Simulated assay, not measured.
Amino acid sequence: MTCLPMKCAVELTEPEKKTLQQLSLKHPHEDFRTRGLGLLELGRGRRVHEIAVELDVSDKSVYNWVHAWNDKGLCGLLSGHKGGRPRALSDALIATAIEAARAESMTLRQIALRIEQVHGQPLPCRLETLSVALRHEGFSYKRGRYSLKKSAMSRSSP
């Protein structure tokens, strides 16, 4: 690596290029995909400022990626994911929801009420968020729909 105030170059081996390319395409966190793409572009000889403008980050961020890559390799690049909003449901709230769902057949609203009773506080999120958390644990809930069966509709027709 060579880093001067306006120039920074990274020499990448073929396996490193392939690894960074996969990282830039398939990692679940956008910030890691951005880091991988930034290092690939540096390896191709592009300037830090050009990369920073294209990726909508600061020049300092690109320099930090280079230093992390040189210090710890891929592990350095993958550490420090700080993006995203904090989770609305704590592990304790999710555990209570799972326990309630396993105990008996309940609607999402009933599970939310059980969480509120156990923890003594209102549910800190919408029911859809609770549904997503339960889906991650293997449960699925569908909103009840009102619908008439065909046989009921045909009987009511004159």
Results as ranks from 00 to 15, higher is better:
Asp31His: 15
Lys60Trp: 03
Trp65His: 04
Ala9Phe: 15
Tyr63Ile: 02
Leu108His: 06
Asp71Ile: 00
Val10Lys: 04
Leu148Ile: 02
Pro122Cys: 09
His81Thr: 03
Ser131Tyr: 02
Leu37Tyr: 10
Thr2Asn: 05
Val10Thr: 05
Arg47Gln: 06
His29Ile: 11
Ala103Glu: 11
His136Glu: 10
Glu128Val: 05
Thr34Asn: 05
Gly45Gln: 06
Asn64Cys: 04
Leu89Trp: 01
Met6Tyr: 06
Pro28Arg: 09
Ala88Leu: 07
Trp65Ser: 04
Cys8Asn: 08
Lys150His: 04
Arg87Leu: 08
Glu128Cys: 09
Gln21His: 08
Trp69Gln: 01
Gly120Glu: 11
His81Ala: 06
Phe32Asp: 07
Gln117Val: 14
Lys18Arg: 09
Leu74Asp: 01
Ala52Leu: 03
Ser157Val: 09
Glu41Gly: 01
Phe32Tyr: 04
Ser147Arg: 06
Arg85Ser: 01
Ser79Ala: 08
Ala88Met: 10
Ala92Glu: 05
Arg126Phe: 09
Trp65Arg: 05
Arg85Phe: 02
Leu108Gln: 10
Gly144Glu: 11
Leu134Pro: 06
Gly80Glu: 05
Glu50Lys: 14
Pro122Met: 03
His119Met: 01
Leu123Glu: 14
Gly144Tyr: 11
Ala103Gln: 13
Gly43Phe: 00
Pro28His: 15
Leu20His: 04
Lys149Ile: 15
His81Tyr: 02
Lys7Ser: 12
Ala88Asp: 15
Gly76Asn: 00
Leu25Lys: 13
Ala9Leu: 03
Gly73Cys: 08
Ser151Leu: 08
Val10Met: 06
Arg109His: 12
Lys18Glu: 13
Ile115Ala: 04
Trp65Leu: 07
Ser24Val: 06
Ile94Gln: 10
Ala152Asp: 09
Gly84Ile: 07
Leu134Ser: 02
Ala52Asn: 05
Thr19Ala: 14
Ser105Asp: 15
Lys142His: 13
Ser140Phe: 12
Pro15Lys: 05
Val132Asp: 01
Asp56Cys: 09
Ser58Asp: 08
Leu127Val: 12
Ala101Ile: 00
Arg47Glu: 14
Ser154Met: 12
Asp91Lys: 06
Met1Tyr: 01
Gly38Tyr: 10
Ser154Ala: 10
Lys149Cys: 13
Met106Tyr: 03
Arg44Glu: 12
Arg155Ala: 10
Tyr146Asn: 12
Pro15Arg: 15
Leu130Val: 00
Leu37Gly: 04
Cys125Arg: 00
Ser156Tyr: 11
Ser79Phe: 13
Gly76Tyr: 00
Asp71Ser: 07
Leu4His: 00
Ser105Gln: 14
Glu104Trp: 14
Lys150Asn: 07
Leu25Pro: 12
Ile98Thr: 07
Leu108Phe: 09
Asp71Lys: 02
Ser156Val: 10
Arg114Thr: 08
Gly84Cys: 04
Thr107Pro: 00
Gly45Ser: 13
Arg145Asp: 11
Ala152Phe: 06
Gly36Cys: 01
Leu37Met: 03
Ala100His: 00
Gly138Ala: 02
Asp31Ser: 11
Pro124Arg: 01
Arg46Glu: 14
Glu54Pro: 04
Glu99Cys: 09
Val48Ile: 03
His67Tyr: 09
Lys60His: 15
Arg47Ala: 13
Glu50Ser: 08
Val62Arg: 12
Glu50Pro: 06
Gly45Thr: 09
Val66Gln: 05
Gly38Val: 03
Gln117Arg: 05
Lys17Gln: 11
Glu116Asp: 08
Lys150Ile: 14
